[in-house]
Structures are given as structure tokens and as C-alpha cells.
Design a binder for these strands. Structure first.
Lengths: 244, 244
DNA sequence: GTAATAGTGTCTTTAAGACATTATGGA
DNA sequence: TCCATAATGTCTTAAAGACACTATTAC
């Protein structure tokens, strides 16, 4: 980092791709913008970083302000930084995007600048494969948020392979079919039943069995309940199944 | 991204971890700082982002200014953003770190603010495993650059597994033993000879054989010369060998 | 009983690990 | 001939793919 020359002032923001599984659908939280630019269009929640916080702290704060989620209930990590000079018509803004997950977030309430906030199925916003922008009837997102959302989805799809991150999408206690539905929702197709169980139960510390079983679903056999294990990595990884 | 409240001004910088293989050692380019803070200590090259460029453009520009490397000769990608409020005592700075590789960079010349610039073996700066800061006689790096360098090394170690990025460290044409030494230098131990050849030659588009052979090394058998293939991914990945 | 969901078992195939062996050049 | 490096071959083992099958509940 050299110390000479001009250093023009930037605004630094955080943008958040907050994911959950709602009714079996991989879903993301969007806010409808109430102010220009992009008033009336949907965007990722976010806001300005304050002088005394790092971006992760700012992301947690914004997440709490917009959804009421407290810090300890989920997982949040940096995605990457978006810095195209014209990405915000108002001023020179660099945005540090973050990804967050939680098993069952409360219905969001619209924040100060958001006209509305709600969950969207990611499949209604993006094409199944990255690259192609979106389905014909998908709403266009504000700023470069479609790109951020696509990058965020790819990050999560990849991380389900080699980490136990899927656990962040289920509330304890949970069943293996529930956990498998997380993979199905994120990947677009469920992993093979038997192979999935073999992999999860064969990875030390992925899940911990309890003595109890859940309630019967639709007259089926009740499933054993599990809690999250302490393992973070899956090695070798659980390979992604091709989406339907 | 909400539009209310204050948006304090930030300086945005890029920091660069530029890697190459020098005499078989995985090496990184450092500059000795000529100005306060941290005058006289070694740091990653970098500088301020200008208003009309994104961070990747700024990183290429700084790389060129500090080393004379032109844009097309290597690979550069964003690593992550470092934003601790006290990371620079002068002002509020957010730094977007990048990683770059090249097969054979020219001897660097000291830039405007750098007293000196030279290549360092990464093993002389960091411990073999991340976490522990460094060897006892390793020079302390300026700012949070030890953390950035550690993250950058881990990114590269991981990417050698599932991408053909190792090709960026060799000049064409190259031999398979040369390519294998890249893996040895970055991972700390060479992959098994036979298994390495099986994997590289069995991955479509990793390398393309030529009709020619290189010169004999130390009286040994001359090796077949190859060129880079078009494949970007290695699937399934080439798994990392434990470092000696 | 049937339908629905949960769970187990097994055969095949892929690919990596761990070597031993052979090939080809120069001094 | 000997040494050094390059290249190939093979046996074993780990683990995923692709199923078929059994178990337990509600009705």
C-alpha cells in the first residue's frame, strides 16, 4: 500500500444475500426500494459501513436492523467486493457483499428506506445455471444485485459440497430427510437417498443422533432426530448432483 | 443498500500478493516501505484505487507500476476485503486484496514510495501451517499483511487442487517435472510422481504435448515439452499431499 | 390390507495411494 | 558402465453411483 498520490473518498457499503429454506424452496430476502435510484425495484438489503466498524460487523448490524435476527443464530461470511465505477449513479460506492444463512428467520419487517421486504424463491429470480440473467418474468434487481445474488448462490452450492454448512439451514432437532431437502433445494435436485445417508452418517461429527424420533409425516415412518455435530469440513466432499 | 444516514468517507486501496516460483521456491513480492507508518518494514505492494477504476483495474495498474508486468501475461483475481477500523493508523482505509501469479516476473524495481522491492520465499515469512504467525527470524510485515499473505497462500494451495492454475507458474513450453515442482513448492511436498502424471495426462485439456523434448538436465533423460491446455477445472480434484 | 415415508444392503465403477519397474540421455 | 532424470505399469484401497430391498407408521 503506497502512501502517495490522491486518495479519493469512497462510500463503503455492505450488501447481504440472506438465505433460508421456506416451504422447501431455497429463498433469499429482498427489499423493495422506496427511494431513488431504483425506487420500486427489488434489491438486496444493505447499508453504509460506519467509521468504527468492519464490514462484517456492519453486515450483522444491517441484518439485525432489517430482519430482527440476532448475531448468534446463524452464519455470515464475506462473499466478495463489487467496485464498478458506475454501479451506483449517486456516488462512488464500493460494496462488500456478504452471505448469511439461517434456518427459520422471522417474517421481515420493512426497514426505514424499504417500502417492503419479503422472501423470494431464488429460482424465481435467477436461471438455474449462472450466466443467463433470469427467467422472462423475473423482476430485475437493482444495481448489480443480480450478479451478487448469482455469485452468492454459487458460493453456497459449492460450500454444501465440502462443509457442513447445510446444518445452518435446519433448526435443531432435525431429521435426515429434512437435511436432505436442504441439499435438494440448493442444488435443484436431491442427492441419492442411500448415498446421502451413508455420507452424512459416515462423516465424523457431521450430525449427532438423539434417542427420540419425530412425528410421523403423512402416515409415514417417523424419522430419527439429530443435532448438529462439531465438524466443519466434509472430506472427501459430497459431490453435487446435477440439477434436474 | 439503504440510502439514509451518514456515509463516512473511506479510502479504498488494493493490496497485491504476487506469486511466482523462483529457484524452486514459492515466492512473493514485497516492498520495503520508505514512509511512515511502518517505514523500513516489508509490505505487500498496493495503492489507492482511483475514482474511475474498479479494484481489479487498480490492481493491474499497481502491479504494472511496481513490477513492469503487463496485463496479459498472468492471472489476477480478487482475494477478499480487509476492513478492520484500526488497520491503518493514518485514516480509515478498506483494502481489497488481490492475488496474482506469473511464471517469470522481471526483477522488480523499487517504486516511488518503496525503498526497495524484492522476492521473498513464502516459507521465510509464514509458518508452514496457517494460524501460527511466522518463524522466529521472519520479518514482521506491515499492517495486516501477514494475515493477507496467509489467506492468499491458502487460496492458492486450494486452487491448485481443483483448477489448472499451476499452469500460470510455468513458461511455455514446459515439462511435467517442471509443473510438478510447482505443486511441490506451493504445497510443501511433491505429489507422487506416477499419480501426478496419470492425473495431469488423464485430465482432458490440462496440457497439450508437443513433438519436441527439452534439454537433458544433469545428465538425465530429456523430458517431453508441453503447452497449456484450455481446461480450467480439474474434476475430480487433485488432492493435496501432506506437507513434509 | 395400502399408502407413505424412513432406513438398510449390496454390487459396480471410478479413481486415488503406494509403490516397483523400465527408458533414455550424458559423463 | 554408471548415474541421473523421465516415464510407465500394477496391485490395493477408498469411496461414490446406482440401484433393490426392508421397516415402521397412519389410515
Amino acid at each position: 500500500m503506497s502512501a502517495s498520490s490522491e486518495h479519493p473518498p469512497f462510500a463503503v457499503t455492505v450488501d447481504l444475500a440472506v438465505f433460508t429454506i421456506r416451504d422447501g424452496a431455497f429463498s433469499v430476502l429482498l427489499v423493495e426500494r422506496g427511494a431513488e435510484p431504483y425506487a420500486g425495484t427489488w434489491a438486496l438489503p444493505g447499508g453504509f459501513v460506519q467509521v468504527d466498524e468492519d464490514t462484517e460487523t456492519a453486515a450483522w448490524r444491517e441484518l439485525h436492523e432489517e430482519t430482527g435476527v440476532a448475531q448468534f443464530e446463524g452464519h455470515l461470511e464475506q462473499l466478495r467486493t463489487y467496485s464498478a465505477p458506475d454501479r451506483d449513479p449517486r456516488m462512488r460506492v464500493v460494496s462488500v457483499a456478504h452471505v448469511a444463512f439461517a434456518p427459520d428467520l422471522p417474517e421481515p419487517s420493512a426497514g426505514s428506506d424499504a417500502a417492503e421486504a419479503r422472501w423470494w424463491a431464488v429460482d424465481d429470480l435467477l436461471d438455474v445455471e449462472p450466466g443467463s440473467p433470469a427467467s422472462p418474468d423475473a423482476p430485475a434487481l437493482a444495481f448489480d444485485h443480480a450478479e451478487i445474488l448469482s455469485d452468492a448462490r454459487e458460493r453456497i452450492r459449492a460450500k454444501l459440497e465440502y462443509t457442513t454448512l447445510a446444518l445452518e439451514f435446519v433448526a435443531e432437532p432435525f431429521t435426515l430427510p429434512e437435511l436432505r431437502r436442504v441439499y435438494a433445494a440448493v442444488w435443484g435436485a436431491p442427492p441419492d437417498l442411500g448415498n446421502f445417508r451413508r455420507k452424512v452418517l459416515g462423516t465424523d461429527g457431521f450430525v449427532v443422533a438423539t434417542e427420540t424420533r419425530g412425528a410421523s409425516v403423512a402416515g409415514g415412518r417417523p424419522a430419527v432426530l439429530y443435532r448438529r455435530g462439531s465438524a466443519r469440513a466434509i472430506q472427501p466432499p459430497m459431490l453435487r448432483t446435477a440439477s434436474a
